[in-house]
């Protein structure tokens, strides 16, 4: 199945009986055939715990279950869309950047930046930065939105990548993450500069970064 990219801002998904999709509410642009959209506050699998997780994370972006027989066009706000195909690994992505994903994927909530120990210090600073993140695991396709498109940066051992938390979109692979402060960050504090705190990703995998510091 998967998603077909129609252009950089629109994808087409095929829905068939027994194969459901999840999509962000409001992401449907058009459809052909008999397709039903059911709002799903529980957001796929995960049950009560993941719902609490999302509530805490303020990531209660409502998802819809898409079922039926037909084709659906998805897009949102003119944002660029990146399709990521998962083959057994786990993708970490902020919930409000999820445009659509296949029902075969297992959904959960994780907390980014928790491995660092600087969390207490930065929690206030980076609030609203969505450091709670959705994880998707298994085999299937995920469509992720980004402001101005994404670049994929490989993470290789001994060569960590540091990312502006506001430009971070998603990552996958065997990656450790922590929030760090940049050299000279004291100069930046209070200037609204993203350089003050950085998300440091190390291990092996890849991180997707968007061409903007703007949250969706």
């Amino acid at each position: 199945m998967g998603f077909r990219e129609i252009n950089s801002k629109m994808i087409e998904a095929t829905v068939a009986p027994g194969q459901r999709l999840f999509s962000q509410r409001g992401a449907m642009l058009a459809y052909k055939g008999e397709v039903g959209f059911t709002p799903n506050l529980r957001g796929g699998q995960g049950g009560v715990m993941s719902m609490i997780g999302r509530r805490v994370a303020n990531e209660d972006t409502p998802l819809m279950t898409v079922e039926g027989n037909g084709t659906v066009l998805f897009g949102h706000g003119g944002h660029h869309i990146q399709v990521i195909n998962l083959t057994g690994d786990t993708l970490y992505v902020e919930a409000d950047r999820l445009l659509a994903f296949e029902g075969t994927l297992e959904q959960g909530t994780v907390f980014l930046g928790s491995q660092g120990g600087v969390m207490g210090m930065v929690r206030g600073q980076v609030s609203g930065q969505g450091l709670f993140t959705t994880s998707l695991k298994g085999h299937g396709a995920v469509a992720v939105m980004a402001h101005g498109g994404v670049i994929e940066l490989p993470i290789i051992p001994q060569r960590p990548v540091r990312v502006d938390p506001q430009a971070y979109v998603a990552h996958h692979g065997d990656v450790r993450n922590r929030l760090s402060t940049a050299l000279g960050w004291r100069d930046m504090v209070g200037r609204g500069s993203g350089e003050a705190f950085q998300l440091e990703l190390s291990g092996s995998g890849a991180v997707y970064v968007q061409a903007s510091e703007e949250k969706l």
């Binding site: 940066l153 060569r159 960590p160 990548v161 540091r162 990312v163 502006d164 430009a167 940049a182 050299l183 000279g184 960050w185 100069d187 930046m188 200037r191 609204g192 500069s193 993203g194 350089e195 991180v207 970064v209 968007q210 061409a211 903007s212 510091e213």
Partner: peptide, 16 residues
């Protein structure tokens, strides 16, 4: 431009 760094690898220092 201040705040325009989105990612880096290696070692970088920032000064206003």
């Amino acid at each position: 431009k201040n705040g325009s760094m989105v990612a880096y690898d290696g070692e970088m220092a920032f000064k206003k």
